[in-house]
Design a binder for these strands. Structure first.
Length: 113
DNA sequence: CCCTGATTCGC
DNA sequence: GCGAATCAGG
């Protein structure tokens, strides 16, 4: 196929209307999306929403680690507070309190302390 | 495996 | 200049 004024105009029109290269190629007929993209690139077009997204994620509010939320004292009490030590990654407590928090007492009769 | 555009490369 | 092949990512 030949890139006539008409075909080029169609290409540009569709491209600017947000059509994907594949849609344009299909519409024109006799060309593949590569031809469309290649032609578009050659005429100075392209620069459409590139699929190659940049890994730009500076805003990562993903909660990494906070301070240990292990309660110290009685809730409501004047000196009630949380442990505050550096918590383990992905856990709400520090290493010490993690042991306590996740200590599974599965049917053991070790209650005589 | 489907898609997207970008770029490269031989013709 | 052309477009398939390849690249790079979703």
């Amino acid at each position: 196929m030949e890139w006539t004024e008409e075909r080029v105009a169609t290409l540009k029109a569709l491209w600017q209307n947000g059509y994907s290269a594949r849609q344009i190629a299909e519409r024109l007929g006799g060309v593949t999306r590569n031809a469309v993209i290649g032609k578009a690139h050659r005429m100075g077009l392209s620069s459409r929403p590139s699929p190659i997204k940049k890994t730009q994620k500076p805003a990562a509010p993903a909660v990494k680690e906070r301070s240990c939320q292990w309660p110290i004292g009685h809730p409501g009490s004047d000196d009630f507070h949380f442990c505050g030590e550096a918590a383990e990654a992905g856990r709400p407590y520090c290493s010490t309190h993690c042991e306590v928090a996740y200590r599974r007492s599965s049917g053991s009769s070790e209650n005589a302390a």
